[in-house]
Lab assay of single mutants.
Amino acid sequence: KLPPGWEKRMFANGTVYYFNHITNASQFERPSG
């Protein structure tokens, strides 16, 4: 399970990334916590 605010998303080319809808942060590494 991801930390609060984070969700797993995917680009059109299939690349997975993680987006935080609270802070609008995005990253390729899975957030810890």
Rank of each mutant, 00 (worst) to 15 (best):
T23R: 04
A12I: 08
K8M: 15
S32G: 13
P3V: 03
P4Y: 14
Y18D: 00
R30F: 15
F28P: 07
I22S: 07
L2Q: 02
E29R: 06
G33P: 12
R9W: 04
V16L: 07
N20E: 01
P3D: 05
T15R: 11
N24H: 12
P4S: 11
P3A: 06
S32R: 10
F11E: 11
K8H: 06
G14R: 02
G33S: 13
P3R: 03
L2G: 02
A12V: 08
S32T: 14
R9A: 05
F11T: 15
G5S: 05
R9F: 07
N20K: 01
N24T: 07
P3G: 07
F28A: 08
G33Y: 14
M10V: 14
K8E: 14
G5W: 06
K8P: 06
S26M: 15
S32H: 12
G5H: 11
Q27V: 08
F28E: 08
W6T: 00
N20L: 02
N13V: 04
P3F: 03
K1P: 15
M10F: 13
F19Q: 02
N13L: 03
L2W: 04
N24S: 10
S26N: 07
P3Q: 05
N13E: 06
Y18N: 00
N24F: 10
L2M: 08
V16P: 08
W6E: 00
Q27W: 05
E7N: 05
M10T: 13
P3T: 04
E29G: 07
R30K: 10
N13R: 03
K1F: 13
N24Q: 14
Y17E: 04
E29A: 08
R9E: 01
K1M: 13
V16G: 03
E29M: 08
Y17A: 02
K1N: 14
T23W: 05
H21W: 14
V16H: 07
G14F: 04
K1A: 15
K1E: 15
M10G: 05
E7D: 05
P31G: 01
M10Y: 14
F11D: 15
M10Q: 12
W6Q: 00
F11S: 15
K1Q: 15
N20S: 05
A25T: 14
R9Q: 05
A25Q: 15
G33E: 14
P31A: 02
V16M: 07
W6V: 01
P3N: 04
F19R: 02
N24P: 01
T15M: 12
P3S: 05
H21E: 08
Q27L: 06
G14S: 03
Y18T: 00
P31I: 01
F11C: 15
G14D: 03
I22D: 09
Q27R: 06
F19T: 02
V16S: 07
F28T: 11
E7G: 04
T23Y: 06
G33M: 14
Y18F: 08
P3I: 04
S32W: 12
K8W: 08
T23E: 05
L2T: 03
N20Q: 03
P31Y: 01
A12W: 09
P4Q: 11
M10H: 10
F28Y: 12
E29W: 09
R9G: 04
Y18W: 09
Y17M: 06
Y18S: 00
F11G: 12
G33H: 13
P31Q: 01
L2I: 06
S32I: 13
N20P: 00
